[in-house]
Design a protein around this nucleic acid. Structure first.
Length: 864
RNA sequence: GCCGGGAUGGCGGAACUGGCAGACGCACCAGACUCAAAAUCUGGCGGUGGCAACACCGUGAGGGUUCGAGUCCCUCUCCCGGCACCA
């Protein structure tokens, strides 16, 4: 075969065409016998085109999918476009064009680039969230949740720009706290009616399932953090002289005897009912102050972000002396002591969390302690600090607590001069009915909760930081909320057979000035009819972009089905997704909303995914999720302002997609990310060049595999094992290194075998799919595509070990010599070999070794 | 402040459950080819000393466990990410 040089452009163009002609990437979902669903986070098709970050993410997923395919599985690897939402809309406004025109252009460009990169997508399953055929079903999803009681309308605070006269999204608020379109106008917080999804109803399952899901740990951790589960108790405090009672949530019910006052959030509804009327002015003033302070704080934080890249937020935490609050002139009764205790409002208690009220135990809570000091409130210690814990605290944190010894610290706590939140035993905690004294924290908790339950004034309780998901956007570029209102303003679901509620083709999609979404101006479109014939008005909001992307992986299987969102049979067969790969920046929002939607649809009876043994909750959409790392350029983050954004087109033009893919997967551990360096991509290109000329021009004789020298065969089988294992773990960089090693040895070998030549190209194929096809067909002369006829080679266990191995001989832990021994040499043989070494004898002199450590297969360490 | 992740040659990065540190690649140096350069090929490439054999040092810093530590334990420094008055 004549040697010819590697021309990536020609190779890639040829196979891209032929694959399309021969439908190599098309899959029959119904007929597949061994389904494997590989999913990657679908992109928002920006005007700039595919970012190298997308390419990195997609390549990693594609390598995984192609590897599975070579191992004989029926791999479904779909793609789509997340083209609704604020990004598209903002960009459209900026360039003064309609998003409706821009999206198809961007999608076309993305499609070109995605095809160019050689991803194994079955384009027949492509979805576009902005097409009515898609968002019809997004609205359907809303209706399923609405019918099941998981969607409701409420009033919530949102960002409002007075200049635009409309609500804007968090993402549109500049760091300075001003509107991005009016940088000199401060954004206000206003209460607006919005639709909410009841994510909190699933808080427990969302939390619990994280403990067994096979997801990247850091992703699960971020979600756990966000969901913020905490267990404790709810306790009702009677208000002296009133019928009302104040429920509080606490994680430390065991400190109940030490509760010496209470605090309500300033906006707690009970405040007006129980406060001394004489205090109302003071309360009103405090509420205003709180509001103002919060706004300033938001701005201040924003300002710091502007001032410096690295803000030391530690300074932000308000010093303890900053605690503010107002005595509202009411008294509550501590149910354990029977004492009347004062009730305050203070901004350190938040209405959004727990019950919006706390029992304050200054002796054992830092914040309560600071507040009590400030307002001169009694501090009653009810736990005797565990002295070991005190010592340890000093040791680990290095803090000297004002230079006190552990015993002095304990003494201070007992005198109410220090706050102790660690372990210890209860004291001063006894009444006629219950005593916690001497009990450690956990036991005291159980004891007091039992008593509270008996007295019917409390119970064990779990709260979550997670809040319901507000999905209304007073915007244009999204799916309209499928709700209509009668003249009294009562909501009615749009009947499913009337979907989609089409986004009207308005000329001006910009927000007007009346505080409602642009849809409010589509006068004709607004008119609707109720099922009973009465006139109705449409909801003028569109739904959050995160809803579009919360169910797209379900639509992929039935992308073109006009009659239903998804085929239940295909869903049972293909879902949950086997492997989902994406960026960890979506750890909380997208991935959490997605899990919620799936759980809620399942609960609503609108979805039933297949059974998988390890999936303990049938409503979870992803069996595995892996967060890939981030890619930087020359050690710095890529950003438009720095002008160091890598455009994949440039590199594909010069080197081809295969080289770019190979390089991206080689530059660092996929799950950790890495550094893109222009010079280094040369290495990947050179490797392919060398391979190409070797496959087409090597004049090494080809012999039956058994006739190859054993070390080369061993290397081959070891490589197969390593590459397979590494790809399974997404350790792509080391897999590629192993292939390079094998190739380096093969190229230097006396002779080759067909098995060896096929092995190298099959191992490489997931990384460089076009290149591999070229070699497979043109150099190896195979009649069919590697992607339909290729099978990942099997390694033979007995061929992964050398007959003879080299082991190290150490003297006192330092390598002094090496000897070659049979692979299964006994301990005695090894010891003899070691002691026979001249170097060891020299080191040992005429002494006898004190000890000889033998590690079969590895080394011998002679201690002299 | 809390919770995660990290620190290994000139550079990106390897190293299974403690067992030959630096795989693979980039850069660099030398040689071959060339009128020359590029490309390609061959060899070298952690530091110090030595003609060499070899010796000593070396995985952010300091201590510890062990026959043996990049890997395990303790303390500290710095970098990256998330959360933050969450009761």
């Amino acid at each position: 075969m004549a040697e010819r040089s590697y021309d990536p452009a020609a190779v890639e163009k040829k196979w891209q065409q032929r694959w399309e002609e021969n439908k190599v990437n098309e899959i029959d979902l119904g007929a597949a016998t061994d389904p494997y669903y590989v999913l990657m986070m679908f992109p928002y098709p920006s005007a700039e085109g595919l970012h190298v970050g997308n390419v990195y993410a997609f390549t990693g997923a594609d390598v995984h999918g192609r590897h599975q395919r070579l191992r004989g599985r029926d791999v479904f690897e779909p793609i789509g476009f997340d083209a609704f939402g604020i990004h598209s809309e903002n960009f459209a406004m900026k360039v003064n064009r309609h998003p409706k025109e821009l999206v198809p252009e961007n999608v076309a460009n993305f499609t070109r680039q995605l095809k160019m990169m050689g991803f194994m997508f079955d384009w027949r399953h492509m979805v576009d969230t902005t097409s009515p055929e898609y968002y019809k079903w997004t609205q359907w999803v809303f209706l399923q949740l609405y019918k099941a009681g998981f969607a409701y309308k409420d009033v919530k605070e949102v960002n409002f720009c007075p200049e635009c006269g409309t609500v804007i999204a968090d993402e549109q608020v500049l760091p300075e706290g001003t509107c991005e379109r009016h940088p000199e106008t401060a954004v206000q917080r206003r209460k607006m009616p919005c639709w909410f999804f009841r994510t909190t109803a699933f808080a427990e399952r969302l939390e619990r399932n994280l403990h067994w899901l096979d997801w990247s740990e850091k992703t699960k951790l971020a979600q756990l953090n966000w969901i913020g589960k905490s267990t404790g108790a709810e306790i009702r405090f009677a208000v002296a002289g009133k019928t009302e009672s104040i429920p509080v949530f606490t994680t430390r019910p065991d400190t109940l005897f030490g509760a010496t006052y209470m605090v309500l959030a300033p906006d707690h509804p009970l405040v007006d009912k129980i406060a001394d009327p004489e205090k109302s002015e003071e309360i009103a003033r405090y509420r205003e102050e709180t509001e103002r302070r919060r706004e300033e704080e938001e701005k201040g934080q924003a300002q710091e972000v502007v001032d410096s890249d690295k803000v030391n937020r530690a300074d932000d935490t308000p010093p303890d002396t900053d605690k503010t609050g107002v005595d509202i002139g009411a008294h509550a009764v501590n149910p354990a002591t029977g004492e009347e205790i004062p009730v305050y409002i203070a901004d350190y208690v938040l209405m959004e969390y727990g019950t919006g009220a706390i029992m304050a135990v200054p002796a054992h809570d830092d914040r309560d302690f600071a507040f009590a000091k400030r307002f001169g409130l009694p501090i009653r210690p009810v736990f005797n600090p565990d002295i070991k814990a005190v010592e340890e605290l000093q040791l680990t944190s290095g803090q000297q607590k004002d230079g006190l010894t552990p015993h002095q610290i304990r003494q201070s706590v007992l005198e109410g001069d220090l706050c102790w939140t660690g372990s210890g035993n209860a004291i001063n905690s006894e009444n006629d009915e219950v005593s916690l004294n001497d009990l450690p924290v956990e036991e005291a908790k159980q004891r007091i909760v039992r008593w509270l339950v008996e007295k019917k004034i409390g119970k064990a309780e779990t709260t979550y930081r997670l809040r319901d998901w507000g999905i209304s956007r007073q915007r244009y570029w999204g799916p309209p909320v499928p709700i209509v209102y009668d003249e009294e303003g009562n909501p009615y679901a749009v009947p499913e057979d009337q979907l989609p509620v089409t986004l009207p083709d308005v000329e001006d999609f910009r927000p007007k000035g009346d505080g409602r979404g642009p849809l409010a101006n589509a006068t004709e479109w607004l008119k609707a009819t109720l099922p009973d014939g009465r006139p109705a008005t449409r909801d003028t909001d569109v739904m959050d972009n995160f809803l579009d992307s919360a169910w797209y992986y379900l639509r992929y299987v039935s992308a073109n089905d006009p009659d239903r969102p998804y085929d239940p049979e295909l869903i049972r067969k293909w879902l949950p997704v086997d492997m989902y790969i994406g960026g960890n920046e979506h750890a909380v929002l997208h991935l959490l909303y997605t899990r919620f939607i799936c759980l809620a649809l399942t609960e609503a009876g609108a979805l039933e995914m297949g059974e998988r043994p390890e999936m303990k909750d049938r409503g979870e959409p992803f069996r595995k999720f892996r967060a890939h790392g981030l890619i930087v350029k020359d050690g710095a983050k890529m950003s438009k302002s720095k002008g160091n954004v890598v455009n994949p087109d440039e590199y594909v033009d010069v080197h081809g997609a295969d080289t770019l893919r190979l390089y991206l997967m080689f530059l660092g551990p996929y799950l950790q990310g890495g550094d893109f360096r222009d010079k280094d991509i040369q290495g990947a290109r050179r490797f392919l060049n060398r391979l190409h000329s070797w496959y087409f021009g090597s004049n090494q004789p080809v012999v039956p595999d058994e006739e190859l020298p054993r070390p080369l065969r061993v290397k081959t089988h070891k490589t197969i094992r390593k590459v397979r294992g590494d790809i399974d773990q997404l350790a792509y960089n080391t897999a590629i290194a192993a292939i390079m090693e094998l190739f380096n040895e093969a190229r230097a070998a006396e002779a080759l075998s067909d098995f060896l030549r096929e092995t190298i190209v099959l191992c490489l194929a997931p990384f460089a799919p076009y290149f591999a096809e070229e070699i497979w067909r043109e150099a190896l002369g195979k009649p069919e595509s590697i992607w339909t006829s290729g099978r990942y080679p099997e390694y033979r266990e007995e061929l992964t070990v050398e007959d003879e191995i080299e082991i190290a001989i150490q003297f006192n832990g330092k390598v002094r010599d090496r000897v070659t021994v049979a692979k299964d040499a006994s301990r005695e043989e090894l010891e003899r070999a070691a002691l026979g070494s001249e170097k060891i004898r020299k080191n040992l002199g005429d002494r006898d070794p004190r000890k000889v450590v033998v590690v079969p297969g590895r080394l011998v360490n002679v201690i002299g």
